[in-house]
Simulated scan of single mutants.
Amino acid sequence: MTAATSSDSDLRSTPLFALHQKLGARMVPFAGYSMPVQYPQGLMAEHLHTRKAAGLFDVSHMGQLLLRGPDAAAALESLMPVDVIGLGLHKQRYGLLLNEQGGILDDLMFVNRGDDLFLIVNGACKQADIAHIQAHIGQRCEVIPLPDRALLALQGPKAASVLERLIPGVNTLVFMTGNHFSWQAQDFYITRSGYTGEDGFEISLPGDAAQAFAEALLAQPEVAPVGLGARNSLRLEAGLCLYGNDIDTTTTPVEGALNWAIQKVRRSDGEREGGFPGASIVLEQLQNPEQLKRKRVGLIALERIPVREPAVLENMDGQHIGHITSGLLSPTLNQPVALAYVEPDYATAGTEIFAMVRGKPVPMKVVATPFVPTNYFRG
């Protein structure tokens, strides 16, 4: 998901556009598409429903593509500080496309499907991502965009029992794995993953099957449609980055507290060290974190005053020490939470700082993320 938007004149529609209108969604421009921000029940109800039952999200604006050929894994690994070669069959991993300065061009998910690598990239970045991948590794593997595929996400503690009813066998998946399935003779690829912190699935399917399948899901009593508004509040509670807000081309993985996404094999003492754009900068930051000028942290407000981006952060002496990149009132906690970048001296859990909201300092405390415990199904 990404924060970028487009003007109304050039908006595209997903295969579920008519269904969103039928369901009474409020549509907004998002990543070049007309997308549902919320439905009549409202953001708060959609958010809480996902936490207790199952929410259905249309994420067909995301980019889907395949990399195919015997050199595909090594080729993709040359673009990211991530172990691609060692990824097991039908295993999924989070990845980061970097520029030569170590800045993040996009974050993505990829799966080793055996015959190919299946990638899901952010909607607003997908054309640039495909061009970047094609330009850098198009001579080493086939790069195959999948514009005719839709993407749905079913998220929440009841997602597995619902989806198992329609697609028997899907419950055998565990977090960050996927496989091929079929529904009414249509080819689906389903991963047990998502962007909410809950158990759930992302379902890649033919665009012309999307409405019928979405309606079959919505016919289940546990399922309600959920828009971009609640998708954003759910991911923030889970401490997950929004591309364009919390990470972008000016932030490195280490500044963004994404060290966990760089496997040991790609680090300075690993057997496949470096070899990706910006490697010298990123590896230096990993080895010498004291040299960082800023770091991403989680914050909780100590007063019930919502703190939103791009609020300035100050220390006890009123000195500027950072800024908010994502913030809102957590529906689950009923407390304001935020992601922010601060100077490293203020990044330790428990540190108290102030966010400036309409000229008033709001006390905030640095905390570990996720703000709400995750419920991923690991088997």
Rank of each mutant, 00 (worst) to 15 (best):
N179D: 13
N245V: 01
Q263D: 13
N232E: 14
V265C: 15
Y189S: 02
Q287D: 10
Q211H: 00
F201R: 01
T250F: 09
E255P: 05
Y189M: 07
G229C: 06
G274A: 00
L166A: 05
S233W: 05
W260P: 08
N171L: 15
A261M: 15
L228M: 09
S280G: 11
G270P: 07
E237Y: 05
K264T: 14
A210E: 04
S268L: 08
R266F: 00
Q285E: 11
F188G: 09
L240E: 07
V170Q: 04
A216R: 10
A279Y: 12
S204R: 12
S182L: 07
I247R: 07
Q211L: 00
W183F: 09
G169H: 01
F201V: 01
V223N: 01
F181R: 11
L218Y: 07
N232D: 14
T191S: 03
P221S: 14
G274W: 00
E198F: 02
F175H: 15
T250R: 10
S193D: 05
Y189V: 07
I167Q: 02
V265R: 15
K264L: 15
S204Q: 13
R267D: 13
I281V: 14
G227I: 07
V282M: 14
E284R: 06
G270L: 04
H180T: 12
L236E: 07
